[in-house]
Design a protein around this nucleic acid. Sequence first.
RNA 1: GCGGACGUGGCGAAAUGGUAUACGCAGCAGACUUAAAAUCUGCUUCCCGACAGGGAGUGCGGGUUCGAGUCCCGCCGUCCGCACCA
Length: 879
Amino acid sequence: MDNQYQPAEIERQVQENWTRQKAFRAVEADGRPKYYCLSMFPYPSGKLHMGHVRNYTIGDVLTRYHRMRGFNVMQPMGWDAFGLPAENAAMANSVPPAKWTRDNIAYMKKQLQSLGFAIDWERELATCDPSYYRWNQWLFLRMLDRGLVYKTTGTVNWDPVDQTVLANEQVIDGRGWRTGAPVQKREIPMYYMRITAYAEELLASLEELPGWPERVKTMQANWIGRSEGVNIAFPYALDGEQKQLKVFTTRADTVMGVSFCAVAAEHPLAAHAAKNDPKLAAFVDECKRGSVMEADLATMEKKGMPTGLYVTHPLTGEQVEVWVGNYVLMTYGEGAVMGVPAHDERDFAFARKYGLPIPQVIAVEGMTYSSDAWQPWYADYGVCVNSGPYDGLDFQAATDAIARDLKAKKLGEKQVQWRLRDWGISRQRYWGTPVPIIHCEGCGDVAVPDDQLPVVLPEDCVPDGTGNPLNKRADFLECVCPECGGKARRETDTMDTFVDSSWYFLRYACPDSDKAMLDERVKHWLPVDQYIGGIEHAILHLLYSRFWTKVMRDLGLVRIGEPFANLLTQGMVLNEIFYRKAATGRITYYNPVDVDIRTDDKGTRIGAALRSDGQPVESDGIGTMSKSKNNGVDPQKLIEEFGADTARFFMMFASPPEQTLEWSDSGVEGGYRYMKRLWAFAHQWQAAIAGVSKRRNGDYTGHAFPDDLGSSSPTVAGLRREIHTVLKQASFDMERKQFNTVASAAMKMLNALQDGTGADGAAKHLHDALHEGFGILLRVLYPITPHVCHMLWNELGYAGDLLDATWPEVDESALRRDEIELVLQVNGKLRGNILVPSEASRAVVEGLALESEAAKKYVAGQPIKKVVVVPGRLVNIVV
RNA sequence: GCGGACGUGGCGAAAUGGUAUACGCAGCAGACUUAAAAUCUGCUUCCCGACAGGGAGUGCGGGUUCGAGUCCCGCCGUCCGCACCA
């Protein structure tokens, strides 16, 4: 091999070797424990971005490391291939989404392969293949049978010019992204999955996931949003009929302080009252039209109007006026609230504004109430006052008593309320899984029989932005009703792409199963032992996947209730943002590769300028790589210039996996320098290192260094001590997935080996120590930069294939030394070092410490209160 | 507003309650070179000091401990998530 480091050539050869021997094929029948390592599959957008490189490198390091630890590892890969961008690309280039998607898959697969990931490509799947999505349809129908799928109306964004439904991201400032027309809301029939039926379990079983980050679990728990309270009915008569206004409250103890009720603009009562009141109708209309951005809602002024309707307080019998409030959400609870102004900040503001009474019903000891201004304690738990029979009761006792009394009157009871809503899966789009339903005039909505699955999506459509092209396809639309045999029309809605990604990790176990959704092999591989992906999927994707797994368990398809045992959420890849603001106010962003940084002679930054014209540019700080900020770096260029190993090394070295990673060109070059240094060292000492294994007919990889060589010279002993000390740290860091310090460890090892040869190149047994140390280095580095390690392992004559090597063992005897240096502290302050025999007892160490010069100087005759000895570390003299 | 994470050199970062700043980047000096690049060697937290040496130091204030970047309490700041949830 060349003495020059040639990554392109090395990586090509090594990858060919792996492909030839099918090195990463995962087979079930195997005595080893299994390890299923999964990275979130990519959307085939065209080419890989840095986030992918980081994600898949983390997965690959874990994959290769666990193989070294004796696991039977499966690392699959596939494509989240349905979705809107393909339709947009189709419109722009007049190419069918299917072709665009498959071309992208082919290109991105090549990119992934060039990075040398240990993927079992035989398990590859794409969600746009009928062999995959037929099982979306099949499970949809099973859920329909069990009432877990149902049909009802839902609200969508409607573009009146293009006559099409828009996804949320296609609505910009309330207007259609293509037409600029104000978006309308439309109620259309949609299919929903009853995820709320699993709310309780989805929340409770979060506790079975110790391998998940706390914050992801918190986000999921907040999203599910369980609250305990009481449902209260306020009776009223309308058009001679007895009715009830139902509200939900978590503060039933304040019910005696109700001075009004408020309903959402969409509430039936509001609509009814508005019929005879044009001003109210206008207000209701205004509320409905108002911004749908929830962040805006929170800061919006609280407004309301009375409906003129009154309801009866369920306990006092008093008449309570009903208002329409712009802050009441139709989508939570019953769309109505009771107003207790004295003990709810929002209700307080509302009551003050409209002159409603604000009676105190909760007292907190030592606090004085006044209805003039809100005080935070008003919302605290306390003791009931002015509450008739409930006076003196605390929160729990009052809630219990009130719930009991309401229940006796059949006007309320305790209830658990969820924030989670059912999952609407219908999309009025072309490029997705067809919903397997047939509409028949006589029989209504009819399920497609199993033997007619899959309902195949025609792949030659080119959307033009004006509605779903399936509506123009007679060959798709026209069909026969499975029940009556008459003419019928096929459903053209497709499924949310989150459906596709809710079970792909199960299908990897048996991607070729054509008789059933899953087969026996699922039992072997699942659950996923390690899942890796972006934090942006912390809620929806992970929640839907957990939901589907539980549904499939209840259908007898899998045994597990939770799909992902351990979750690693990788940090984002950031880069600096540079821009110029023109006099017109227009901002232009410049890619960091085109910008030069100017520094003073201490290296402190003083400015930045565009290379092409030398004029200054402003920095907008560090942000996620994005097209809009023009701060992305193309991984392809990185691989071509430095090779996959350097790309992988930098990604692992620059920061720990869960933290953000800042791009740095010079950091990449540092990684490349290390690769070159490694290569050069191996070739400089090749004869020595390889010679050892020839001479001794074996090597020391996986074995302790021969006893007679251990302490042959200070150089050798020192080198071995350093290698094994660093190895110990690297093993610890690998287990806790802190890969940046594993990369550091590899660098330290090379530094130690170089120092060893420099200090005493002729030391006895130095070659043995180099052979051992370099073998350890190659195995520590192998999960991160497998190509160069594989090549050097073979060239230097180490035994076997590095693919089958085990993680190196620490030789504790190499760490041993006769004398150790302890830190000497006086009153916790560092005052020097002392040398003590490594086997010295506590008393001996104490004695040596007290006799030392430093101790005498700083103790200076003061009485000694205590001496703390931490074996192997320090002595602290307290005076 | 609620919840979470974080705050360490010029920069990315390390430190399993025990020598803070490992490893790398940038910078400075030197070697090699006609020269540059590449490569190699050394230095590089701050302050005082010519040196020897001394002092300060992990956002700020307090606490626990023989000992705190690390644990606890209170502030300040940054980032992220959720957000009129009754």
